[in-house]
Amino acid sequence: MTSPLLWYVNRGSGVVLLLVLTLTTVLGILSTSRRFSALWPRFVTQGLHRSVAGTAAVLLVAHATSAVVDTYVDIRWWQALVPFGATYKPLYLSLGTLALDLIGVIIVTSVMRDRIPTRTWRAVHVLSYLTFGVAVVHGVGIGTDAGQRWSVLLTLACVGLVALATLARLGIGLRAAAEGSRA
């Protein structure tokens, strides 16, 4: 079946996912900070990170489902779960599938966090950086609006935000390491 609605849902959810994943990643990175105030207590950043990640998961399901259900473009259900064997734009679709798989593992390990070793959880969670990059490339490669000026600006802004947050995190990490060695 096909309809313009499915098409708009798929494209729309894709664009919003870029924003939501950017927000999730930035919030996750900022959760490592020790800064807090009366207006922004310590638990807020982490709490938002989890809620926004949940929103991303829902959007992701809508995005993948609409892509599979819409017969206008030939995307079979297994191609949404396994990153090879695709026929429509195989490289960029596979990257999307890869991002979906990674997000799935990241979320599952986080839900089970108290039952798995901390180093396992951390190793998987660090894949978020890779996941974000993969998702962005997927969008740039397969997105039908990718050439549009607004889309390019939006993508650059999102990547920029994540890059900025990552640099800030490195700063925190280096500072902590220096303090640790000074003690």
């Binding site: 959760s31 490592t32 638990f43 982490q46 709490g47 966090r113 108290d114 901390t118």
Partner: peptide
């Protein structure tokens, strides 16, 4: 509080 502790 238990689930939110960043270091479990």
């Amino acid at each position: 509080a238990v689930t939110s502790c960043p270091h479990q």
